[in-house]
Design a protein around this nucleic acid. Structure first.
Lengths: 219, 219
DNA sequence: GTCTATACTGTGATAGAC
DNA sequence: GTCTATCACAGTATAGAC
């Protein structure tokens, strides 16, 4: 593994675990057992490392997010399992770059370029969740309820974005896998009451998947 | 106004507008036209200023949050207007100390004491929202749906905590008053589908209050 | 209570040898 | 590509005069 890549991997780990703000270039160099000078040979500074890490994150997310926008998830309409798995993957990808979310406003304030791009990404998340809702709900929501649907999609986007922060705050040290599963359940549950008579069935199916995932987790 | 209080007021303003992480003791002293030495006479350092500001925030919030827990809001059950106003006040109080939410994880990591207390405060928010739900929903939610109710309350707590961040991210520079009104509407909307046959009426009432508040806003 | 001076620290960044 | 050495600077904190 090249030094440049090792710097990226180690930086990401330190940012996630110790917080980006309090990880210095020296910390990174120490962790890698290289000199600060060497680090500066590969990257002009912390800014450049963060820019590169964000680039990685953006590529991965954008790729995933386009899936439900271009084609409905699952073979049959309302395929719960496919949507569950999809949300799980999204949460996982976000969790891998969780340092972004921990000091979000701080980072977005310092890097206006990342701010613009992050905003676009959130809008993309919103579109993806909107597409999922539209297939799940099908024609169920009346035309007049367009606005209601917008509120639901905002609700889901908000949950997707901040759930892990919220859950880890209330349950410090909880296994991240559990947090993520809870997050998926949380989103699915928020959709359920809009499903009319299928509402309870849908919710029960979700809980069942949740239970199943929770118990096979120690793999 | 005593210097000590002026330091607190100015610090809060700077933290909110420029971000806590990048506001130094010197910035605060400059803004007040006093010397850094003078500032250090009143507070041992930035830590102590933050601790004091948090104390203020906690007192105000805890006081407000106990209201619906001890007695239902509104004179009649399901008094929408009273609950609307209540949520509005909560958002406003949080907005006044928004620097806390902008770098939340960073601050909570640096001050373990604040972490514990903030966590308790979120649980208090959760209790308040739970109490509101119970009066609004009354006996509507079946016993079997206890778990569903928990998911709803988590959803509302999450929205209350992060809505302003989310809204300001997607609509940079939007009038905070509008963000807050949207936040209240967002929470009320999330409750509405659980109201059974009153669902649509409730939602329409909320939209009406929202419209009214939006237009009298330029006061 | 408030000021000016100053010292200490950690971090970011570069130059030049190997 | 990697190292050592060193600089510059910002932010924190204190001492002592007024």
């Amino acid at each position: 593994m090249k030094t440049r890549d090792r710097i990226l991997v180690t930086s990401l780990a330190l940012f996630n675990d110790e917080g980006e703000a309090h990880t210095t270039t020296i910390d990174i160099a120490n962790e890698l057992d290289i000199s600060p000078g060497n680090l500066y040979y590969h990257f002009k500074g912390k800014d450049e490392i963060i820019a590169e890490l964000y680039q990685q994150y953006e590529l991965a997310m954008a790729d995933t997010l386009h899936a439900p926008i271009t084609a409905p998830l699952g073979e049959t309409d309302g395929d719960i399992e496919a949507n569950w798995y999809y949300l799980y993957v999204l949460f996982e990808e976000m969790y891998q770059y969780r340092f972004l979310y921990q000091n979000l406003d701080d980072i977005l304030q310092r890097y206006p370029d990342i701010r613009r791009r992050f905003k676009r990404l959130v809008q993309l998340k919103r579109s993806a969740l909107s597409a999922i809702c539209l297939t799940l709900l099908q024609q169920r929501v009346l035309q007049a309820d367009e606005d209601l649907l917008e509120r639901l999609v905002d609700n889901l986007t908000l949950t997707l974005n901040y759930w892990i922060n919220y859950d880890q705050l209330l349950h410090t040290g909880r296994d991240p896998q559990v947090s993520i599963l809870q997050g998926v359940l949380q989103i699915m549950t928020a959709i359920s009451p809009y499903l009319g008579e299928d509402s309870l069935n849908f919710y029960e199916d979700c809980r069942e998947i949740y239970q199943r995932m929770m118990h096979k987790e120690p793999n």
